[in-house]
Amino acid sequence: MTAKRRDGRSVIGDLAMSGSSKLLFPRVASSALEAVYLNSSGGVTGGDAFDLTAEALPGASLRMTTQAGERIYRAAPGAPGRVDTKLSAGDGAQLIWLPQETILFDGAALDRRLTFDLAPDARLLASEVLLFGREAMGETVQSLFLRDRIDLRIGGELVFADRLRLDGDASEVLSRFNVANGALAMASVLCAAPEVAARLDALRDALPETAGATALSDDLIFLRLLAPNGFALRRSLIPLLKDLAGSDLPRPWML
């Protein structure tokens, strides 16, 4: 899909959907276009393939989220679920990508790729949250295949790459003192905007001890946050995202 600017508001440009991937466009008060991704099959399992491509055209503002947390179910060996998301923003455009949590069930196998392509003066706020198991039900993730990649290009140049790779007994690895010290929830946040590094000190003051933020350039902040569970993570993450977005967050992210 694309978002384009018309009469001071952002509206749908092109739109094409197929399979169980749907986009909903709730009416919002802001001038941005809000798009809510919905996987009507209810989750991802082995052999599934999901592709999403979205672009904020020059000057447009596109805010994307998901209708629910994405459940990654137990997969048969050898066939991970594949999720490929390509997002871009043109000159002067703003892109906000705040999907709800990805919940990795015991036995999950996920091969995921998320790429951002920004024009040099475009703005991006993106967050990805991984939850390892459904803590409320006492489930631990003893078997996992995870390949989770994020690439960020600005003006065609690769400026950030994240490669998460975790196989086998994830709960054992996460419990290690120097890996995650038992945290079952992790957020990764990217914020790209001209001179965004000037906001780093204020952002750091608001971080819990289990989080860190850095300016990889004057125009790019990266943040990693660990929390014991999804609820604690939301409590820390939402104020940070709200501050970075400079506006209200899409509805699923309101506490």
Binding site: L146, R147, R149, R163, L164, R165, L166, V173, F177, N178, V179, A180, N181, A183, M186, T210, A211, G212, A213, T214, F222, L223, R224, L226
Partner: peptide, 13 residues
């Protein structure tokens, strides 16, 4: 390529 060491990432930040 890739790994999973968020504590180390956070410590370096």
């Amino acid at each position: 390529i890739g790994g999973f060491a968020p504590m180390l990432d956070i410590q370096s930040q």
